[in-house]
Amino acid sequence: MENPTSHNIFQKAALATVIVGAVISLILVIDAGQNNKSIILRLLFMGWVLSPFVAFVAANVSKRWVFKVRAVVLYWLTIIIAVASPVIYSGVLSPPGAKLTPLFLFVPLFAWTIITIFIVAVSKSRR
């Protein structure tokens, strides 16, 4: 049987990871947009990049995930997305000289797709 304390530690680790990932992602999106004169566009990019992190924080603090399997899957998704996003945003996986702007558009879209699939799967499993 799983120890409830290990479940809480896993939840706290996921929350800490998502917060650190959000801060690093925010720094990277600000750095990438430093030459853009449009404040509105920069704010929109920041909101778009941070939105999956906000969703993961909300999901992780929610009491809705009663079953441990669902919670553990959520924690793993949170950690994977929170670690992968800043790595991708940093450009270390991109070829030298590649434009990073598409990454700031598609990574959050991918994260939202994963979040949506998880929510649909959980809601179908409750029936």
Rank of each mutant, 00 (worst) to 15 (best):
Gly91His: 05
Val61Met: 05
Trp65Lys: 03
Lys12Arg: 08
Gly33Trp: 09
Ser90Asp: 08
Val87Pro: 07
Gln11Phe: 02
Ser25Tyr: 04
Ser25His: 04
Trp65Cys: 05
Ala71Arg: 10
Gln11Leu: 11
Lys37Asn: 13
Lys37Glu: 14
Ser62Asp: 10
Met46Asn: 02
Thr17Trp: 00
Ile115Ala: 09
Tyr89Gly: 01
Gly33Met: 13
Met46Ile: 12
Ile81Ala: 07
Phe104Thr: 00
Gln34Thr: 08
Asn3Ser: 13
Ala121Asn: 10
Tyr89Val: 03
Ser94Ala: 14
Ala111Ile: 09
Ala111Lys: 06
Ile24Leu: 09
Ser38Asp: 14
Met46Leu: 10
Arg64Cys: 02
Val18Glu: 05
Met46Lys: 01
Gly21Cys: 03
Ile19Gln: 00
Leu100Arg: 15
Ile115Trp: 10
Ile119Val: 15
Glu2Val: 08
Val23Asn: 07
Phe118Trp: 10
Pro86Thr: 04
Tyr75Phe: 15
Ile114Ala: 11
Ser94Ile: 01
Leu77Tyr: 01
Phe67Glu: 14
Met46Pro: 02
Gln11Trp: 01
Thr101Lys: 02
Val83Glu: 02
Val66Asn: 13
Lys63Glu: 13
Val83Gly: 02
Phe56Arg: 00
Arg126Phe: 09
Ala59Thr: 03
Thr5Cys: 03
Leu74Gly: 00
Ala121Lys: 10
Ser6Leu: 13
Val122Met: 14
Ala121Gln: 08
Ser38Cys: 06
Leu77Ala: 01
Ile119Asn: 02
Ser123Tyr: 06
Ala32Met: 04
Ile24Met: 03
Ile30Asn: 08
Val92Gly: 05
Gly47Trp: 06
Ile114Asn: 05
Asn3Ala: 08
Ile114Asp: 02
Lys99Arg: 15
Ser51Met: 07
Leu105Arg: 12
Ser38His: 11
Leu50Val: 07
Ser90Val: 14
Phe104Asn: 00
Ile9Gly: 03
Val122Pro: 06
Met1Pro: 11
Val73Asp: 03
Ile88Asn: 04
Ile117Leu: 11
Phe45Gln: 04
Gly91Met: 08
Val107His: 01
Asn8Met: 15
Pro102His: 13
Ala14Gln: 09
Leu15Asn: 01
Glu2His: 06
Val122Trp: 04
Ile114His: 02
Thr101Leu: 03
Gln34Ala: 11
Phe106Lys: 04
Ile115Gly: 03
Val69Lys: 15
Ile114Met: 12
Ser38Thr: 07
Ala16Thr: 14
Val87Cys: 03
Ile40Phe: 10
Thr116Asp: 06
Ala13Pro: 13
Gln34Asn: 09
Arg42Trp: 03
Met46Gly: 06
Trp48Asp: 00
Phe106Ser: 09
Met46Thr: 08
Thr116Ile: 11
Phe110Ala: 15
Val66Gln: 14
Ala59Ser: 11
Phe110Gly: 12
Leu77Asp: 01
Ala14Ser: 15
Phe10Leu: 10
Val92Lys: 04
Phe110Pro: 03
Val20Arg: 00
Ser25Ala: 14
Lys68Thr: 14
Ile24His: 01
Lys124Met: 09
Trp112Tyr: 15
Lys124His: 07
Phe106Asn: 12
Lys99Phe: 09
Asp31Phe: 12
Gln11Met: 09
Val23Ala: 12
Asn60Cys: 15
Ser51Thr: 09
